[in-house]
Design a protein around this nucleic acid. Sequence first.
DNA 1: CCAATACTAGATTGATCGCTCTAGCGAGTA
DNA 2: TACTCGCTAGAGCGATCAATCTAGTATTGG
Lengths: 196, 196
Amino acid sequence: MAASTQSKRNTRQRLVDASAELLARQGYNATGVKQIVTAAQAPFGSMYHFFPGGKEQLGAEAIRTSGAVYEQLIEAVFEPAPDPVTGVRLFFAGAAAHLEETDYADACPIATVALEISSVSEQMRQACAEVFESWIAAGSQRLERAGVTPERSRELITAMLAALEGAFVLARASRTTTPLLVAGGAMAAVVQSELA
Amino acid sequence: MAASTQSKRNTRQRLVDASAELLARQGYNATGVKQIVTAAQAPFGSMYHFFPGGKEQLGAEAIRTSGAVYEQLIEAVFEPAPDPVTGVRLFFAGAAAHLEETDYADACPIATVALEISSVSEQMRQACAEVFESWIAAGSQRLERAGVTPERSRELITAMLAALEGAFVLARASRTTTPLLVAGGAMAAVVQSELA
DNA sequence: CCAATACTAGATTGATCGCTCTAGCGAGTA
DNA sequence: TACTCGCTAGAGCGATCAATCTAGTATTGG
């Protein structure tokens, strides 16, 4: 029974993980169900066994998983920073480095899907919205600890996330990391003046 | 000859215009060739007559056209502003209003395509990059006239465009205009401190 | 008026899409 | 051993994809 549950978890989880990666790199429409099960090394039949809602259900779960993983990642990057301002800089610089290392493939794991699908699938749109919301909430807490009011923290983090997402768009199109560095600089200045 | 050239221009142009609109709303992968010719009320055969490079060539041209149209639009929105700071605010507020009016369908005409396709089609990626570049160049000129150095203008406009694009992503996912308003406020502050 | 060219028209192709379906495997229970 | 049931396995469905192909109609220059 333990082994059975284990293998079940594995197959299911492999499907979600493979989806998360493919969705991040190619978006929703360009990713086929067949491609997902192949990448996950999962049997085709299992996909509709675990996800009777089909591609959409699997996609929504993959988005939420990506969201949770990246929330941890955000925390990890901010943690070693001595203050919020250098934290912001480090964060954008880290994103730039990672983007370049992956040949401009790994940007935001859900942005492409969010743009593609928000007007088509309410289920997927909601998943994306929840992930963004959780990121904003996590970031806000961090700023509040630095002495910023809750409302203002939320505004600043929302603006920061927007700058990050947009910089990813520009960076992927231009194959340059400058948008990330420049946007990071601008947002660092905003946070700076807020703390002063 | 005049009539012939006219009709030729019309059919070709209708294909480009219809593509531009569909690409903006649905992205590249979700937009079918059949859907384009139907929307353009153009004969299917004409599409491959005018665009032997197929969907990709038509897409690239549509992106460039959208870019040119929106560049005019940007200028028009900034024109009546008394100073750059209120110009920024007006711009983001206008984008928010328009997004809401179109039920969150009309955001950036090329962002979705840029994210979807930048890692797949070099031709399309380049078209998107050129459009972003032209927007940045146009915006920079405007800031330079307010007394900011060319390099700094470029940086500020790049950050502003990033904030705008990212705010669109968040706004479409959350079906809220607050990301646009908040990002606009943050960028207005940045420009403000630059001019002071 | 005729030949050449530009454009229209849509049937058709092969590939791929998401998904359903039936059949059977294998581990746990009685 | 028999039975159940979670899961595997993949053939195959109808639909749709981008693109090609052959005919055809206008329009043009000679």
